[in-house]
């Protein structure tokens, strides 16, 4: 089996069983320096039990998208436009109180940095049972017992000891496992994991990815996996949405995108992946920098770095165009370009 195609199924129909539907999301940060358009028209879909990879460089709006879905964008950020539908109901219209009942219960979040994901001044058990008690009618004693079970389910050895330890007594990998256990505390149907492995050693990274895959199969939970690593997408995800400078470049199944990228940025991303066994061309970096999001480039935001850019790319913002089979592309020239995948067999 070519591992690059991931564990996902190869169904081609467009989202049979929708769980989360995000459309035209815009989240801006109102700073002294100006309005930072961190997320500027992003749309994505997740269906039940599916794992969606959200890929992009830092500054592409991955994390802000995740925070927007949960409506926990930190000040001075604000969701200015868009719809977010979860299980058919609009999250944007919920009152804060009702939103709190969804966070951690229906949709859980695993933050990026395991070193600061746990509060340093409370014991692990206290932090887990706090979340458990928030979402279940349960005594403190039973919550602690459930916390121990959760630690066991994320394969932490000696959970009874860990439960009474402080975060600084634990390794980075263990902390990330605890963060995942906390995400499971409310029995969620969707987990958003924000670069869950970036800050970890390579061997620990593999273990955490295995754990995520195992949980996904065992609990049939849907997942949004935020990453900058196409290798991880290939390994874990069913579908992928590629972001650039706060906008979507393209989305589709992992197979489609890896076999036949439609956006020049996706192609460049695939070229710059270091650890893909199937890569044919030599490793390259994408020239230029992620643009300033206060005054982004006119037209297509990728145009200053795009090798195929023409006048229209500077003059006109492209549409996010559905091109069949559940795919969509955000490029003026996708038809004529006929890009080749650097990793396709």
């Amino acid at each position: 089996m070519p591992w690059i195609l991931g564990s996902g199924s190869s169904e081609v129909s467009a989202l049979p069983d929708p769980l989360l539907h995000v459309q035209n999301l815009r989240t801006y940060f109102f700073t002294y320096a100006g309005i930072v358009k961190a997320v500027d028209d992003i749309s994505l879909d997740v269906s039940k039990g599916e794992t969606l990879g959200v890929v992009g460089e830092s500054g592409s709006g991955k994390t802000v998208t995740a925070q927007s879905i949960l409506r926990i964008v930190p000040s001075p950020g604000k969701i200015v436009d868009g719809t977010i539908e979860f299980e058919g109901k609009s999250l944007m219209k919920l009152r804060e109180k009702d939103m709190q009942r969804i966070r951690g219960k229906d949709i859980a979040y695993v933050p990026q940095d395991p070193t600061s994901t746990l509060d340093p001044v409370y014991r692990v058990g206290e932090q887990l049972s706090e979340v458990i008690m928030r979402h279940h009618v349960i005594s403190r004693k039973d919550a602690l017992a459930k916390a121990t079970d959760l630690l066991r389910s994320v394969e932490i050895p000696d959970p009874e000891i860990r439960i009474s330890q402080y975060p600084h007594e634990l390794s980075g990998g263990t902390k990330q496992r605890i963060a995942i256990a906390r995400a499971l505390a409310g029995d969620p149907v969707l987990i958003i994991a924000d670069e869950p492995t970036t800050a970890l050693d390579v061997t620990i990274q593999a273990q955490i990815l295995d754990l995520l895959k195992e949980l996904k199969n065992r609990l049939n939970v849907a997942m949004i996996l935020i990453t900058h690593d196409m290798g991880i997408v290939a390994d874990v995800c069913d579908r992928v949405t590629v972001l650039y400078a706060g906008q979507v470049c393209e989305s589709g199944t992992v197979e489609q995108v890896f076999e036949k990228p439609k956006h020049p940025y996706t192609q460049a991303l695939l070229t710059s992946v270091p650890n893909l066994a199937l890569r044919k061309e030599k490793l390259s970096v994408i020239p230029g920098n992620v643009p300033n999001l206060i005054e982004p480039p006119s037209g297509c935001r990728f145009n200053p770095r795009c090798p195929y850019a023409q006048q229209i790319c500077i003059d006109k913002v492209p549409e996010l165009e559905p091109i069949g089979e559940g795919r969509s592309v955000h490029c003026h020239r996708w038809k004529e370009l006929d890009l080749k995948s650097p990793v396709a067999s």
């Binding site: 949960l70 930190p74 709190q100 969804i102 859980a108 990026q112 340093p120 979340v131 906390r182 995400a183």
Partner: peptide, 15 residues
């Protein structure tokens, strides 16, 4: 407030 445990706390539905 910059720390991830604040974000995680909010994301866990804490008040």
């Amino acid at each position: 407030l910059r720390q991830d445990y604040i974000l995680a706390g909010r994301a866990s539905g804490l008040s």
